[in-house]
Simulated scan of single mutants.
Amino acid sequence: MAYEVQGVVARSKGAPVSIETILVPDPGPGEAVVDVQACGVCHTDLHYREGGINDDFPFLLGHEAAGVVSAIGDGVTNVAVGDYVVLNWRAVCGQCRACRKGKPWYCFSTHNAAQKMTLADGTELSPALGIGAFVEKTLVHSGQCTKVDPAAPPTAAGLLGCGVMAGAGAAMNTGGVGRGDSVAVFGCGGVGDAAIAGSKLAGATTIIAVDIDDRKLEWARGFGATHTINSKDADPVPRIKEITGGFGVDVAIDAVGHPHVYEQTFRARDLAGTVVLVGVPNPAMKIELPLIDVFGHGGALKSSWYGDCLPSRDFPMLIDLYLQGRFPLDDFVSETIGLEDVEQAFEKMHRSEVLRSVVVF
């Protein structure tokens, strides 16, 4: 028997979202139903609404979520009813070429629920990132559920489901930031600030935040930035070189995803330094760099997919650090809202007034 719940749906490109009745089926083999307790409003949800991901409307939005497993299907062994979980969009298969190489954080065949959630009239919904969590209950593959310590409130825990993990992982996993390193982070929204927090956690001693908004730069200081640069006023590269004794940083992170920013990131790193792209560019963007500069700098140019995280490893670890007071998840939460406030939260996001609005059920 299907569950009848309320959720936030984007019916067509660019149209305001609406609250709809959603039918959630009983879980089939390998699936789980999760009672969502909190879900962050992420830029990716806005990209779905704007048609920037694909055209598979209508979308059931929401994906940065935590909640409690309320039902499981046949064959599910990794979670049980009553488990407190963070939802993830990297349910690794264990069998693809990446998993067989021992690199499951690159899994090329991740799992989603086989069944579809629908509108009341039977119209099938496309869940954002295979999750769809702006809803009272959602259906996911059991591998998308990662058990964490229930002492962490869902408003904080759920943020690991996307933006915070992407940023922290870009620094710690992809960039390999270590003790004594210097780091520059371009773009100080939720992902960029998470990269700053991750760099601090990893032991970086110089963390340079770059943005065009002084308010965001002040937020960045709260997450661990030791220096800030407003790139609207001047080219940040010479200033970064000055701060680092003329050399550039060990790790430079582009949390914007724009060609001009990427070039600045590339030129801000030291010899043999690492560039990490974690901001998502649009498909039309291109970049041109002198090949001799790519060769001459050495090091590595990397892209970070979901912070190159392994949810089963990284989510519990970061929750434990949060509970120890060492990772500031609460500081990412600008406000808590209801389902009916999601459209307004998108507007606040456009105006850079919030790091994260979080829907609470």
Rank of each mutant, 00 (worst) to 15 (best):
E64Y: 03
K103P: 00
G52R: 15
A194H: 12
E353C: 07
D254Y: 10
T336M: 03
D45G: 05
R326E: 10
A234C: 06
G176A: 12
M285V: 01
G245I: 13
F59S: 05
L23Q: 08
L339W: 02
L301G: 00
V191M: 13
I19S: 03
S312A: 15
D213C: 11
D233I: 05
L23R: 10
L323C: 09
V359A: 02
W105N: 13
S303L: 14
H297V: 10
D26T: 14
A170L: 13
I337Q: 01
V92D: 12
L46P: 00
E136T: 09
M165H: 08
V81R: 04
L277R: 14
A120P: 00
Q115P: 00
T123I: 04
A209P: 12
G192S: 08
K241M: 14
C39L: 11
P328N: 15
L339S: 06
D331M: 12
F134C: 02
D211T: 02
K286H: 08
A152N: 01
M1K: 11
T118S: 03
T244V: 09
S303R: 15
C162G: 10
D308P: 00
A168D: 05
L46D: 14
C99E: 01
H47S: 12
I53M: 08
I292V: 14
V278R: 09
G175F: 11
T174W: 07
R221L: 12
A209S: 05
R326Y: 03
A114I: 11
D35T: 11
